[in-house]
Amino acid sequence: MKYIKLLIAPVLLIIGVFVAIACEPDDICPEGVATTPRLIIDFHDILNPDNKKNVFDLIAFGVGNDNVLSDYYFTDTDEVFLPLKTDVNTTQYTLISDATVNDNGTPDDDTDDYIEGNPDTITINYSREEVYVSRACGYKTIYKNVTLTIEPDADNWMLSRQPMNENQSVENEDETHFIISH
């Protein structure tokens, strides 16, 4: 009986070691790992194209879903980071410059409020490629052959656009992808 007890202890120890080795680390995508990048647009001065220029009281929202981007809600900025759709090859945004809230004459009732300002719509076209990152992080989408069009209207504040490269791609958030002059 003692012999069996002496054998069981090392066997349990060996089994415990194998179980510990066989366990995998948590499948959590670490912070800082590159995921699906956003499109980066810098705003420049139309009169001095080498200088960045703020857009004041900017509001940005997706066309078709009217989701306001929380980072761009009455913001003064000289750049925007816009997420692109991963399930279709086109994304549209409306960017409103000099935005204000019209309370419709009822300051105590915000249900009838609406946004005023100078809206311009941009259309971004691209092709998508899925790239494997890791088991924890899954796949990310990179965008190839990206084009940006400023939709014409009666009062465009965005006057020109320029891609940073021919056959512009969006593979990371370390560089500007387009310049829009205003």
Rank of each mutant, 00 (worst) to 15 (best):
79 E>H: 10
25 P>F: 10
91 T>P: 09
53 K>Y: 06
17 V>H: 11
15 I>T: 11
130 E>M: 11
132 Y>N: 07
16 G>P: 15
174 D>V: 08
170 V>C: 07
52 K>Q: 07
135 R>K: 15
48 N>Y: 11
159 L>V: 07
95 L>N: 03
65 N>S: 14
72 Y>D: 05
127 S>P: 05
105 G>K: 14
121 T>R: 12
45 D>V: 06
71 D>G: 08
106 T>V: 03
117 G>D: 10
58 L>H: 03
127 S>W: 09
162 Q>C: 08
75 T>L: 13
178 F>R: 00
35 T>L: 12
127 S>F: 04
30 P>E: 13
78 D>G: 04
119 P>A: 08
150 I>M: 03
175 E>K: 15
86 T>R: 11
176 T>F: 08
44 H>S: 15
162 Q>F: 09
118 N>Y: 14
26 D>N: 07
19 V>L: 13
133 V>Q: 11
167 N>V: 05
10 P>Q: 11
88 V>H: 03
33 V>C: 11
141 T>C: 02
162 Q>W: 12
95 L>V: 07
62 G>Q: 11
45 D>K: 13
173 E>A: 04
142 I>L: 15
120 D>E: 07
12 L>T: 04
86 T>Q: 13
39 L>T: 03
44 H>C: 10
87 D>Q: 07
51 N>C: 13
117 G>W: 15
169 S>A: 08
11 V>N: 06
78 D>R: 06
151 E>N: 12
121 T>K: 09
16 G>E: 06
90 T>A: 09
10 P>D: 05
166 E>A: 14
